[in-house]
Design a protein around this nucleic acid. Structure first.
Length: 496
RNA sequence: GGGCCGCUAGCUCAAUGGCAGAGCUGUGGACUUUUAAUCCAUAGGUUGCGAGUUCGAGUCUCGCGCGGCCCA
């Protein structure tokens, strides 16, 4: 179909539209339905890896990829093609092979960014570059917008807002997509090798729970009721364990209606896993194995080197500390679950931590810990034994009153995973949730509501269990050292 | 929410309050072995948006929008 050329467009876009029209006017397709390729660029590179300089193989191929670099001379044109996986291959078009008209059209109609298909012979140039020497070429998709300059970094904002462009021009962006895919597949492989069952539980929930966070609210027309986007799958996965799925995991999105910054996204992928007849120490062993296997799958080693040159050693058995022990060491004075609120407030004041009046003592301890201890937790460290008043779904510690059987895993100063020996006593569970509901009615937007169906499930009997949650984005950050905006393909950004 | 920095050509960036520029990209031309090709010529702008100060504003002031960093 003919299109009119819009005079308001920037010159370069107007010209590309004119070239599209020229293709149509001469009876060719700027967007053909397909182009039968006989090989990928990667296959050609692998097959002819050792071809000597200035060699003609006589082998013919049909290749297609995006043009990312053009060097045209009078009778011999060079172009660098780049496939989606980043593999590049040179194309050569010579007057004596393709003829005057085809060569002129190439020079006139092909811009950086266009997709082209080329039939030709695999050769190496006089400079030794593996190339396809064209017999003929076709446009497979005309690009109407120019690519950004190849050798200047795209601005951070442009990278995030136009990830498709970022993926074309920046190798690290392509790498991250594949790292992430490989890591998630590795997680599933580790579970499946051990007989776990993967499930999908509701994202739209009548009642949000399983974590302390503000939810997104939406409306269900059919039921004429508000629904919450889940903040965690925990309460449903526990229902699964009650029902007899003894090793169950889910990798899926959670949604939290909170601040956006370089480590927090409104939606994020999360792994949660529950195992009957396991405790939090078993879950630590599982987590270590999951992360180490993922590191090996992605980088081939349990020691990973980040872009900034720092090395992260994920191998072996990871360091273990306790919450109160590490905080006491940082403070230079012993802090325990019995330290009075007054003293904690003095310590918070001394270290410049502003306090919310709704906070319970345990919350204050965790804030102090976050401020004073966490930044130093670079190599993977399990932090054990959290106070009971901030962990309403966790079992009481078997020997230490006031504490729970919970750990957080920190890597590079970031909380990457957490696990509990799960609370399975439905009476205690109800008491804890009633207390949470009281907080909620006092105005704490992060407190949990009373989920009667969940309590009913617990009353049918949940076996002793360990549970673990790990942020997929955090895992990728730990493995690669990149920012969360780089680990998520399309992070939420303000509308343009 | 507060503070600081930024927003200029398709991209990346310059420009003492005094003619809005460069590189790459684009366009026209030369070139049969280029590798960010080279050479000649050339086009491209509502300087984020809106007010104000000034003879004169990309530059100074105020407001708004978007982004980044730091703090809460």
């Amino acid at each position: 179909m003919e299109t009119t050329v819009d005079d308001d467009l920037p010159e370069q876009m107007r010209i590309r539209r004119e070239k599209r029209n020229r293709l149509l006017e001469s009876g060719r397709e700027p967007y053909p339905v397909n182009f039968p390729r006989t090989a990928s660029l990667a296959e050609i590179r692998a097959r002819y890896a050792d071809l000597p300089t200035d060699t003609a193989t006589g082998d013919k191929a049909a290749l297609a990829a995006r043009v990312i670099f053009i060097r045209n001379t009078g009778k011999l044109c060079f172009a660098t093609l780049r496939a989606g996986d980043g593999t590049e291959l040179q194309a050569m078009l010579s007057l004596d092979r393709v003829g005057q008209e085809s060569l002129d059209e190439w020079k006139r109609l092909v811009d950086l960014g266009d997709h082209v298909g080329i039939h030709g012979e695999i050769i190496t140039s006089r400079r030794g570059e593996l190339s396809i020497l064209a017999d003929s070429w076709v446009m497979t998709a005309k690009a109407l917008r120019p690519l950004p300059v190849a050798h200047k970094p795209l601005s951070e904002e442009a990278r995030v807002r136009q990830r498709y462009v970022d993926l074309v021009v920046r190798p690290e962006a392509r790498d991250m997509v594949r790292y992430r895919s490989t890591a998630v597949r590795s997680l599933r492989d580790t579970f499946h090798a051990d007989g776990w069952v993967e499930v999908e539980t509701p994202m739209l929930q009548l009642m949000h729970g399983g974590a302390a966070a503000r939810p997104f609210v939406t409306h269900c027309n059919a039921l004429d009721t508000d629904l919450y986007l889940r903040i965690a799958p925990e309460l449903y996965l526990k229902r699964c364990v009650v029902g007899g799925i003894e090793r169950v995991f889910e990798i899926n999105k959670n949604f939290r209606n909170e601040g956006l910054d370089s480590t927090h996204q409104a939606e994020f992928a999360m792994l949660e896993a529950y195992r009957a007849y396991a405790d939090y120490r078993d879950m630590a062993a599982l987590t270590t194995r999951l992360v180490q296997n993922a590191a090996r799958a992605v980088f081939g080693s349990e020691t990973v080197v980040h872009h900034d040159g720092t090395t992260l050693d994920l191998s072996g058995t990871w360091r273990e500390v306790t919450l109160y022990g590490s905080l006491s060491e940082a403070l230079g004075e012993a802090v325990t679950v019995d330290t009075p609120m007054g003293r904690l407030l003095e310590l918070a004041d001394k270290h410049g931590i502003s306090v919310d009046p709704l906070w319970v003592p345990g919350k204050l301890v965790e804030e102090l810990f976050e401020e004073l201890v966490v930044p130093g937790l670079v190599q993977p460290t399990f932090v054990y034994d959290y106070p009971v008043d901030t962990s309403p779904l966790v079992r009481q510690h078997r020997t230490q009153p006031g504490l729970t059987e919970k750990w957080d895993l920190y890597v590079r100063g970031m909380e990457t995973a957490t696990a509990y020996s799960e609370l399975v006593d439905p009476v205690v569970q109800r008491e804890r949730l009633v207390a949470q509901a009281a907080l909620a009615s006092k105005g704490d937007p992060e407190a949990m509501r009373l989920d009667e169906d969940f309590l009913r499930a617990m009353e049918y009997g949940m076996p002793p269990s360990g549970g673990m949650g790990m942020g997929i984005d955090r895992l990728l950050i730990a493995l690669t050292g990149l920012g969360i905006r780089d680990t998520i393909l399309f992070p939420l950004v303000r509308p343009e």
